[in-house]
Simulated scan of single mutants.
Amino acid sequence: MINILFAGDTAVWDEYAPHLRSAFDALPFNADLSRDHAADQVDYIIFGGGETPLKDFTPFTRAKLVQRLWAGVEDIVGNDTLNMPLARMVGGGLDQGMVEWVTGHVLRHHLGMDAHLNGQDGVWRNDVTPPLSRNRPITILGLGALGQACGTALAALGFPVTGWSRSQKNVPGLRCLCGADGFAAALSTAEILVLLLPKTPATESILDAAALEKLPKGAVVLNPGRGGLIDDQALLQALDNGHIAHATLDTFRIEPLPANDPFWPHPQVTVTPHIASATRPDLAAEVVAENIARGEDGKPFLHLVDRAAGY
């Protein structure tokens, strides 16, 4: 019997437990999923969301893996008691959801949809024709699984896509840059900028005043990544002085975004409530089951976190 501990609040447990049990039924061994296993009897830990009480991993002397249900791991990666492998969620519907959100909002700004959606007043506004996609350069900061998926989808629509990452990547159809010089070059052409970096000390406020100045005047910023990637005050200033035309933001430093936050009433800001990409319980359960099966077969785990890099 393989004992699997679910560490997450009741709402997440109620949503995910049926799908996890269904996925585990297909495994070639018996798996007992519970929220109440004794620590020294746990073989695998599924780390869910909410106010989980699990902070100390020291008693889990038998556990082989902590499997995160989300892509982000910033709330656990720095835990000094975590002395076992940590895997983040890759797949589970995250990639497709992110592609759909990013593509939708890129097309919204590329086509200038707001002028027509907000202008149903009898005025025939045909004075501006959007460029073809091949003439609208897009930059994606972050070329992990989500960044690559979004970049590939946008390139398939004809957009010239530049991707920037900490280390050099090679993604067919994308111009891939890295390092400090690559960062400046990636920003300099970005008429639409998409942030899909993980939140780490190295990426904290990476889009600050200096970075925003490197963007072309009239650029649009999309942030479905992490709230901490942006210097909020610098972005507001860039919006107010007209250097940035619009910001569509899905993630924030404080969530839910407080009702008195200046992003809410700003005419050049669109707030979406952290919906760009969510783990789908049925698909995520398959990813979790596959990783546990790999552990029992003695195979390397998938999607392991680099603890030093923070993602």
Rank of each mutant, 00 (worst) to 15 (best):
T200K: 05
T200C: 07
P201N: 04
T203S: 11
T203H: 07
T203V: 04
E204H: 15
E204Y: 14
E204I: 00
S205H: 15
S205I: 00
I206S: 06
I206T: 08
L207D: 06
L207S: 07
L207Y: 04
L207Q: 05
D208R: 00
A209Q: 13
A209V: 11
A209N: 09
A209K: 11
A209L: 02
A210C: 09
A210M: 11
A210F: 12
A210I: 13
A211L: 11
A211P: 11
L212P: 11
L212Y: 10
E213Q: 15
K214E: 10
L215V: 06
L215G: 08
P216Q: 03
P216T: 03
K217L: 04
K217D: 14
K217G: 00
G218T: 08
G218H: 08
G218I: 07
G218A: 06
V221Q: 04
V221P: 08
V221E: 10
V221D: 12
L222D: 02
L222Q: 01
N223F: 08
N223L: 09
N223D: 13
N223I: 02
P224V: 01
P224Q: 02
P224R: 02
G225I: 00
G225M: 10
R226A: 03
R226N: 06
R226C: 05
R226K: 12
R226F: 09
G227K: 03
G227N: 10
G228I: 02
G228W: 08
G228M: 06
L229Y: 08
I230W: 04
I230D: 08
D231G: 05
D231F: 13
Q233A: 15
A234L: 08
Q237G: 00
Q237P: 00
Q237T: 14
A238E: 04
A238F: 05
A238P: 11
A238S: 14
A238R: 14
L239C: 02
D240N: 15
N241R: 15
N241E: 14
H243K: 12
H243L: 02
H243D: 06
I244W: 11
A245L: 13
H246Y: 14
H246P: 01
H246W: 14
A247Y: 10
A247Q: 02
T248A: 11
L249A: 02
L249W: 03
D250L: 04
T251N: 02
T251C: 14
T251K: 01
F252W: 10
F252Q: 02
R253K: 13
I254L: 13
I254M: 10
E255D: 10
P256F: 09
P256S: 07
L257W: 05
L257F: 12
A259V: 14
A259R: 14
N260Q: 14
D261H: 15
D261L: 03
P262I: 01
F263P: 03
P265F: 12
P265E: 12
P265G: 01
P265A: 06
H266W: 09
Q268K: 15
V269T: 07
V269Q: 03
T270Q: 11
T270F: 11
V271I: 10
V271E: 04
T272K: 01
T272P: 11
T272W: 11
P273A: 10
P273M: 04
P273C: 03
I275S: 12
I275Y: 11
A276F: 13
A276L: 08
